[in-house]
Simulated scan of single mutants.
Amino acid sequence: MPSPAAPRPASPRAATTRPAATAAPGARGLAPGVLVALLLAAGCVALTAAVPVVPGLLVAIVLGAAARAVGLVPAVLDAGLAWTARRVLRTGVVLLGLQLSLGDLLGLGLREVAVLLVTVAATFGVTLWLGPRLRVGRALTLLIATGFSICGAAAVAAMSPVADAEEDDVATAVALVTLYGTLALLVIPVAARVLGLGDRTAGLWAGMSVHEVAQVVAAAGTVSAAALTVAVVAKLARVVLLAPLVAGTGIVRRRRTARADAAVPEQAPARRGGPLVPLFVVGFLVAVLVRSAGLVPDAVLPAVKPVTTLALGAAMVALGTQIRVGRLVRTGGRPVLLGGIATAVAAGVSLTGLVLAT
């Protein structure tokens, strides 16, 4: 007859694994992963400084993904890399706000602003509508829609807590947005010449359709200095839309969750909605306002950009290490197709609008 104590062998395992799942690693546990991410990011920043056409964020995430794929990420780095992928990335988004000023919008005409708004809305809306039809997960669809319509990896990071996204989804969205942004920076300058676009139109097209700021600079810089100036203004105008888009999405998702809870009250305690407006998005908006008000000393501004790039680069390295090839294979080509369509919408709508506006 079995003893009542027979089921107990499973208990020690549960007792030993539970603290590991709940205990937060200390500074010593985080340091190795954080330092490795920062060192690799510094190398990527130096590479971009030497060869501006090479997007450092793309190189950073590729390095991280490659290291994970070939087994070069020891377990001692995991805690620090996971922390970097979340906390350092959010710090980079806040610092990005110090590079923006509401006065930058004055460089665009009313028609051009209208084209920019329509492009952002069309890219975001079409991607959200198409994602479920391609059987792409809701969280990943939302991240792709945000990254492709606003400003790439930083936008993905800002939307991720609102979307309740897993790290694999964030890493996949960042990989897609950097991949297609790189393709766009190669195609758009050539297409602009073939189509006979003027420097201003070509620059605006790059600023409204290419995903990352660095990619916009590379794309427009190959056209002319005049194209580069207006491209950066258009891109910064898109970045300014990041906070209202994330806040608006948070409000919509919170209302849907409230209605679902009212319909099925017994399941309400189990629901976990994302924050209405993540604190780091508020920090981003405050940073924009601080910069716009002229409260940042001129001597500080030149140091902000490299620090921001280093923070985002370290986060991209860390996110790259979160990519599991097995999961990407299971997702198939649907997210890749969705990213391609989102890029085509952004490029097509912005070019059509700019041609009609001139």
Rank of each mutant, 00 (worst) to 15 (best):
H211L: 13
T17M: 13
A145H: 03
V239I: 13
A191R: 12
G333K: 01
F280Q: 00
V246T: 06
G273W: 14
G29S: 03
V281P: 12
I144H: 05
E167K: 03
L176S: 04
Q322V: 04
R68W: 09
K235F: 03
T123C: 12
L72Y: 06
L116C: 04
L179Y: 10
L186Y: 13
P7E: 11
A15G: 15
T321G: 01
S11C: 07
L130M: 02
G125H: 08
V93L: 07
G92Q: 08
A6K: 13
A344N: 06
P244K: 10
A82C: 02
R111Q: 10
E212S: 09
L351Y: 14
P306Y: 11
A75K: 08
V136D: 01
A157C: 00
A41V: 14
V73F: 09
P161C: 05
K305S: 09
L289M: 09
A315F: 03
G152L: 03
R18S: 15
V187P: 00
M159W: 06
G250N: 07
A237S: 15
S149P: 00
C151M: 08
A21I: 07
P269D: 08
A154D: 05
K235Q: 10
S350F: 14
I188F: 14
T141V: 04
A258W: 14
A357Y: 09
D168C: 00
L319V: 07
L312M: 14
I251N: 02
G198Y: 11
P335G: 07
G326K: 08
G29R: 01
V174P: 00
E212F: 09
C151K: 01
S160Y: 03
G250Y: 12
A287F: 04
I251F: 12
L95N: 06
L289I: 13
T123H: 04
P269F: 08
A42W: 10
G29T: 12
G339N: 07
V296Q: 06
V62T: 05
V336E: 06
L95D: 08
L312I: 14
V286E: 01
P9L: 15
A10Q: 03
G294R: 10
V113A: 11
G71A: 05
A214L: 11
T141P: 00
A121H: 02
E112H: 06
V118H: 02
P52Y: 15
A50C: 03
G147R: 00
T229V: 15
D168Q: 12
D164R: 06
A192F: 09
A14N: 12
V76S: 14
E212V: 09
T343Y: 06
G103Q: 05
A31F: 06
Q99P: 01
V286R: 08
G207H: 07
G131I: 03
A293Y: 11
L58C: 09
L38E: 01
K235A: 07
P269I: 10
T182A: 08
L179H: 10
L130K: 04
L95E: 08
T222E: 03
A67K: 01
Y180C: 11
R13D: 12
R259F: 00
A202Q: 02
L183V: 15
L100R: 10
T222C: 05
M1D: 11
T249A: 15
T257L: 15
A342W: 09
